[in-house]
Design a protein around this nucleic acid. Sequence first.
DNA 1: CAGATCTCAGCTATACTGAAATGC
DNA 2: CGCATTTCAGTATAGCTGAGATCT
Lengths: 154, 154
Amino acid sequence: MTRTIPVQDAVPALLADKPTWLITQVSVHAHRLIASHLTTAGARGYHFRLLAALAESGPASQASLGRRAEMDRSDVTAAVNELAADGLAERTADTGDRRRNVVSITAGGRARLRQLDQILDGVQDELLAPLSVAERTTLAGLLGRVLAQQAAPA
Amino acid sequence: MTRTIPVQDAVPALLADKPTWLITQVSVHAHRLIASHLTTAGARGYHFRLLAALAESGPASQASLGRRAEMDRSDVTAAVNELAADGLAERTADTGDRRRNVVSITAGGRARLRQLDQILDGVQDELLAPLSVAERTTLAGLLGRVLAQQAAPA
DNA sequence: CAGATCTCAGCTATACTGAAATGC
DNA sequence: CGCATTTCAGTATAGCTGAGATCT
């Protein structure tokens, strides 16, 4: 299997052989695909993450949303503003705990979530095109185990 | 390096099941490990990348270095300044093509490269601790094939 | 009192763009 | 002329910190 990389501009083996390099490069590629496809649809990655969290776990405070979608507390505020401005989510006061807002997904938000999910599924296919279904499962399993260690370290 | 992640704030399945999400999260984790270990040694990731490129392919122009180490042309300038200030690389004029600089690695640079390489090998072990040797090979192979498609798309 | 929440202002690192100066 | 190289200035974005106001 030959790759068309000019010899003079080849990535050093000392680098190319390291798993962290492979992961980083694939991640960069994935990020570009996602940003490109979502931008076409007028969305951002965090829009999808927030809508997914809202759809799966129901209305939530912004702090909880941030933890579930792996977003900083400061950035959730602006992101929810964007979703609300587009009618995809609603922000109301929490009558039980008046420090909090309660953010809920709207019908339009659910439709948007389905649309973005389809776009992202297409990105998975594009990114993993060289791999068979079985290989994609293997890859996801290995990555999942690496991540599990991070979430629950020794 | 902070780790939070209470159990009740689980990542939505719609997200957690996507390979791009797994890859991104592992990449973030890897980046934190690398930055943490290299900072302790007073280095940056691009220092290693540049030194590796210089050691493997010999003296090179900054443009070629940037392509090999996946760095922007603008950022190579500052990075080479840092290496030169530490005596790890030397910048001289190219007598054959007077647009170019020729950057060479020094003896100190080679020693530094060996040191950083050992640090990064340790990071690989830490990141991939949950996987067997065979599984690490499988993971690297799968990621390599995904990347190969990126470098030489259909 | 300690601690959680929301918001805003601002910081830092990274990646990239534009343009000028020089030379092929 | 087009194109490559180096350099600097500036932009955009993500991720994060600090602090204040409010509330449990």
